[in-house]
Computed example of a mutant assay.
Amino acid sequence: MACGIPICVQCGTRSNPCRCKVVGPTLGFLAFVGAAIVEWPVGALVYCFRHMKGRRTTAHQANVVYPRVNRAIPI
């Protein structure tokens, strides 16, 4: 069984001369997974009592964490 670090590539971007990003999307994905480990169970629990707040909590890493990390690193 192979176990490795996920590598994400984003091509067609204008944030650098090469028009490809590897580090930003990869770190963004790892931050997404780290936040999801905490936020998805919390969001599921909150959803039982407050539906919209639970939905926002479970979507936080996709709407906020990944884009911020991805945009912060231009390569």
Results as ranks from 00 to 15, higher is better:
6 P>C: 09
43 G>L: 02
50 R>N: 05
66 Y>Q: 07
24 G>E: 03
27 L>G: 09
3 C>N: 12
63 N>H: 11
26 T>A: 07
53 K>W: 04
64 V>C: 08
24 G>V: 05
22 V>L: 03
6 P>G: 09
31 A>T: 13
40 W>D: 13
50 R>G: 03
8 C>P: 08
33 V>L: 14
25 P>M: 07
27 L>E: 10
38 V>Q: 10
34 G>L: 04
18 C>G: 09
28 G>L: 02
30 L>I: 14
46 V>D: 01
39 E>T: 12
41 P>C: 12
39 E>M: 14
17 P>C: 01
64 V>L: 12
16 N>G: 08
65 V>H: 00
59 A>F: 05
42 V>L: 15
23 V>W: 11
41 P>V: 06
60 H>S: 06
71 R>M: 11
75 I>W: 15
45 L>P: 00
33 V>Y: 03
38 V>K: 11
17 P>E: 05
44 A>W: 11
3 C>R: 15
70 N>A: 02
20 C>H: 05
48 C>P: 02
57 T>I: 14
8 C>T: 15
33 V>M: 13
11 C>N: 04
4 G>N: 15
37 I>G: 02
74 P>M: 01
47 Y>R: 05
44 A>Y: 13
13 T>R: 01
49 F>M: 04
6 P>H: 12
33 V>I: 13
31 A>C: 15
32 F>M: 10
24 G>M: 08
37 I>S: 07
20 C>Y: 09
24 G>T: 08
25 P>D: 07
61 Q>Y: 08
37 I>H: 05
1 M>K: 13
22 V>M: 03
40 W>F: 14
39 E>A: 11
59 A>Y: 01
75 I>V: 10
26 T>F: 10
36 A>H: 03
44 A>G: 14
72 A>P: 06
62 A>N: 10
38 V>Y: 07
71 R>S: 13
47 Y>N: 01
22 V>H: 00
45 L>G: 12
15 S>N: 03
52 M>T: 11
39 E>I: 03
11 C>D: 01
35 A>V: 10
51 H>T: 08
31 A>W: 12
17 P>K: 04
29 F>C: 08
8 C>V: 15
6 P>L: 12
42 V>M: 13
75 I>E: 09
11 C>I: 00
73 I>T: 06
10 Q>S: 04
23 V>I: 14
26 T>Y: 08
69 V>D: 02
39 E>W: 00
11 C>L: 02
59 A>L: 06
5 I>A: 07
31 A>S: 15
47 Y>K: 05
43 G>F: 00
50 R>Y: 08
53 K>R: 12
29 F>K: 06
65 V>F: 00
24 G>W: 01
30 L>C: 11
21 K>G: 05
60 H>G: 02
7 I>L: 06
45 L>V: 06
